[in-house]
């Protein structure tokens, strides 16, 4: 039997060594972690326009992602009053870099009506423009979010990509993994004339060919979450997109 003193001494030494080791490792790899996170979210943004990139998206490299972002994408930060922010103003809010991809949307989401919104304008090789909007909301277990690419009529969806924090693989996680489900959104419309209709996720199969998609069986709540977040967020872009329309 060891005495209490020697037990304490052993535990103290062990935990000190372990925490020092992990602290050094964490610090040493931090820049790589941040870089990976950044590229990952840029890639998710590009996934919404994967059909228009003229490359095989399943084998896209980090360098290609950065290249497309540097060459073909214009980043804007807007709010729901239709006001655009300069990079300096965004930096003043605490985001290093000051562009749309630097926003921490988990943080902005909590701000409600005061939130800043990222907008990416992608110019295809044939000169056509695509507008990628962002949406965030609640799934079954945790947050879900996604990017919605609109054609230059600011109405027709050109593609979407969704992601999630903790949805069930095979059920809720299908919003990200099931390419056929994601493809349904292509060609759907957000507006009927001037009225904002958004996209509904319909259990039992879409009834309206323009404003509805099929739900995923076994993932009703996640599907409803997708519909809710689209309804919440896309209308916030309306004032700014109106200024673009002129």
């Amino acid at each position: 039997m060891h005495s209490t003193g020697s037990v304490l001494r052993f535990v103290l030494i062990l935990t000190t060594v372990v925490s020092l080791l992990l602290a050094f490792l964490q610090n040493g790899l931090k820049s790589r972690h941040e870089m990976n996170e950044a590229v990952y979210s840029k890639k998710a943004t590009l996934a919404s326009i994967s059909d228009h990139l003229n490359i095989d998206f399943s084998t896209i490299t980090d360098e290609q992602v950065e290249e497309i972002f540097a060459k073909s994408i214009e980043q804007v930060v807007v709010n729901q009053d239709g006001q655009a922010f300069t990079p300096e103003e965004v930096m003043a809010m605490g985001y290093k870099g000051g562009s749309a991809s630097d926003l921490d949307m988990a943080k902005e989401h909590k701000k409600g009506a005061e939130k800043m919104l990222p907008l990416y304008v992608f110019t295809k090789s044939d000169g056509k423009k695509y507008y990628i909007l962002y949406a965030r909301g609640k799934g079954l277990w945790d947050e879900i979010w996604g990017c919605i690419a609109l054609k230059d009529d600011f109405n027709t969806i050109a593609g979407v990509s969704f992601d999630h924090k903790a949805e069930t693989p095979g059920l809720g996680a299908e919003i990200k993994d099931n390419k056929a489900w994601v493809k349904q959104f292509i060609g759907k419309k957000l507006y009927d004339g001037d009225e904002f209709k958004s996209i509904k996720v319909r259990k039992g199969g879409a009834k309206d060919p323009v404003y509805e998609v099929d739900a995923i069986s076994g993932a009703t709540i996640t599907g409803d979450g997708v519909a809710d977040m689209l309804d919440d967020y896309l209308v916030d872009y309306e004032p700014f997109l109106k200024t673009l329309k002129g």
Binding site: M1, V7, L14, T15, V18, L22, L25, L29, H33
Partner: peptide
């Protein structure tokens, strides 16, 4: 007296090392 906890600390450290390395 504390062998189980010490074992856990050792495993947890190694797992964190793996996690940080994979993330990078």
């Amino acid at each position: 007296q504390v062998r189980m906890i010490v074992q856990l600390v050792i495993i947890a450290t190694l797992v964190t090392v793996v996690e940080l390395t994979l993330k990078a």
